[in-house]
Computed example of a mutant assay.
Amino acid sequence: MSQLPPPVRTGRPAAEQNGNAEQFAFRPASKAGRKARLSIQEMSGSGKTWTGLGIAHGLSEGRRFAVIDTEKGAASLYAGVGGIQFDTLAMDRYDPRDLARALDAAAQAGYPTVFVDSLSHFWKGTDGTLDQVDRAKAKYGGNKFAGWKDGTPMQNDMVAAILAYPGHVVASMRSYTEWVLEGGKPQRVGTRPEQRKGIEYEFDVAVAMDIDNTLEVLKSRCPSLNRKVIPRPQGARDIAGPLLAWLSTDPQPETAPMPETDSTEQ
């Protein structure tokens, strides 16, 4: 069998090569300017709202922050407790595009932190992503799967808005619950959050809270929080403090030495 000739690479104009080199230029890694992204998932009664407010207060370093409230004013019941001060935006319909607009309004107002309580409503509440998919299926002959052509971009744009916010973002989510037997007694436990599968991967830190108000760190890019289990957490001290310390630590990268040339090489 005859061998194929080696591939011939056609040279590109120098200007085009230089442009691509600038576009794909690598730079030293840095956390400079990075803001926290944290999610809290829990069953009803686990303390997510109070814990989320404490974390947002700590991340804001005492300044007023914003709460996007879908929980019928639950957060406002804690206003002033422990010196926590915030402004709220109450929402009773949950189009994911409206969350993006609310985040944009918070950014224009200059809030250092936004607490979304809760993100679950923008998934399965009135006008949430699931509602949008159900409505869109009519355009595709009742095919609900095809309705995701409309729903997925809305969901993705909402997540992009959370990630693009110029300050810190804390988002609570309700958990699906199940009953299990522990020691012969039925116990209610939380499973995954009521949001699109994999949503927790979008956050730097994802925590879960149980009915005893114990916080477990499920995932953390902040090393000092990795796998922590904290009974009755104080959000500002136990979570926000380590997060701010981690984000503010950005050592100057060392310059790698150039490889030495063997003087005996010809």
Rank of each mutant, 00 (worst) to 15 (best):
A21P: 00
Q23D: 13
Q23I: 09
A25D: 11
A25N: 10
F26Q: 14
R27K: 13
A29Y: 10
A29N: 08
S30T: 15
A32M: 08
R34D: 00
K35P: 00
K35N: 09
K35L: 01
A36L: 12
R37G: 04
I40E: 02
Q41N: 11
M43N: 12
G45N: 06
W50I: 03
W50Q: 13
T51K: 01
T51Y: 01
T51Q: 04
L53I: 07
L53F: 05
L59V: 05
L59W: 01
G62D: 07
G62S: 05
G62F: 05
R64A: 11
R64M: 15
V67Y: 09
V67W: 10
I68T: 02
I68D: 01
D69A: 06
E71W: 05
E71S: 07
K72D: 14
K72M: 12
A74I: 01
A74W: 03
A74D: 10
S76T: 11
L77Y: 11
V81I: 14
G83M: 07
G83L: 05
F86V: 01
F86C: 03
D87Q: 10
D87T: 08
D87E: 15
T88F: 01
T88R: 13
T88E: 14
A90L: 12
R93T: 15
R93G: 01
Y94S: 11
Y94W: 13
P96W: 00
R97I: 02
R97H: 08
D98L: 08
D98N: 10
L99A: 05
A102I: 06
L103S: 04
A105K: 12
A106N: 03
Q108N: 09
A109L: 14
A109M: 12
Y111I: 00
Y111M: 00
P112H: 04
V114D: 07
V114P: 00
V116P: 02
S120E: 07
F122K: 05
F122G: 09
F122R: 03
K124F: 11
G125H: 07
G125Y: 04
G125L: 03
T126R: 15
D127W: 02
T129N: 00
L130S: 05
D131R: 00
Q132R: 14
D134N: 13
A136Q: 02
K137V: 02
K139E: 15
K139M: 12
G141L: 08
N143L: 03
G147V: 02
K149F: 07
D150Q: 11
G151V: 01
P153I: 10
D157P: 00
D157K: 15
